[in-house]
Design a protein around this nucleic acid. Structure first.
Lengths: 169, 169
DNA sequence: TTATACGTTCAGTCAAGACTGAACGTACTA
DNA sequence: TAGTACGTTCAGTCTTGACTGAACGTATAA
């Protein structure tokens, strides 16, 4: 229940890195996400490099990735030169889009095989159609989850102002 | 529409390999699956090694993997020493189980972080709960797809006996 | 002007894990 | 018994891509 909070947080950040790695994203992207989930942000560019002990190059690459996915957003502070990053209000469904994209490509690939394969491959056509429909079902379902999730999270949370990130001493 | 069927098939097999690689499975597993989708099977152990130009070690490893996932099944022929493999009747939903498992583990990881993190991390707890529910939603939805798919494919296909695999000359 | 503080890019390093060849164990065959 | 035909396992190689350090371009500050 209590234990060492820092350790808990470090474990969480590290494990979320492993999770995103299994999802085909760089581990560091997951670790940045982890920090954001715990502290919300904003974090400065330098903060991220120091807290995660990673190079500025990695911060640049991975924040841009997460930004393009819609998971975090870049902000600036008047009179400051550094970029700041904070987690977006509904950050998870954009992650799903990656899955959907991959499945769409897979389905299209199957579709073009169906088009190209001569008709005499009867059973093959049956199985290809099966595979095609499988992807179709997956895609539909994914899209429904996203819809459902977005509706839910928009209902329950009105955007709140965030404090600058700082661990409790 | 017509073109070179062999080329179409080779492309399909190769691309399915890339798809499974993106899903976190070895490329060879996908190529084996691809062959099975086109020709159905059964393929002998040696067939697979020769047709895909891969080592027997890879055949062993990857057939065992696909077998454990429930995508293919190993059969034997009376009087033959070789193992044969054919695609199972409803081979795709077992693949989904891998996704579900990963998400379950992710959710559990978030859960234990919630348990361990002191209460004073108020906003962190909110966001962790959000993440937890996200995974929960995903898991539920995935399971529904699997159910739906299994019901559908069981409805439309009664298992048929297969011919031994052989490309048309 | 020069100096400094950024963020980005790119060539190179490193690590993870897919894949292979070789050695092995087992079970048939003669 | 020896010989052969398997499937599996394991140490080593190789490939892919994450990650880094260094160089760069830009903007601010003095």
């Amino acid at each position: 229940m209590t234990g060492n909070a820092d350790q808990t947080i470090e474990d969480f950040v590290e494990r979320l890195g492993l999770v995103t790695q299994a999802d085909g994203l760089p581990r560091i992207a997951g670790r940045i996400m982890g920090l954001m989930v715990i502290y919300g942000g904003p974090f400065s560019f330098t903060d991220l490099a120091e807290k995660l002990q990673i190079s500025r190059a990695s911060v640049s690459t991975n924040t841009r990735l997460l930004e393009s996915l819609g998971v975090i957003e870049r902000t600036t502070v008047p009179g400051e030169r550094q970029d700041y990053f904070k987690i977006r209000p509904h950050p998870y469904s954009p992650l799903m889009q990656g899955y959907v994209e991959r499945m769409r490509r897979a389905r299209d690939m199957v579709g073009s095989t169906q088009d190209e394969l001569p008709e005499e491959f009867g059973e093959a056509h049956e199985r290809l159609q099966d595979l095609n429909e499988f992807y179709e079902t997956m895609i539909d379902s994914f899209e429904k989850v996203v819809e459902k999730w977005d509706a839910k999270s928009k209902r329950s949370s009105v955007e709140k102002p965030r404090q600058p990130a700082e661990e409790p001493a």
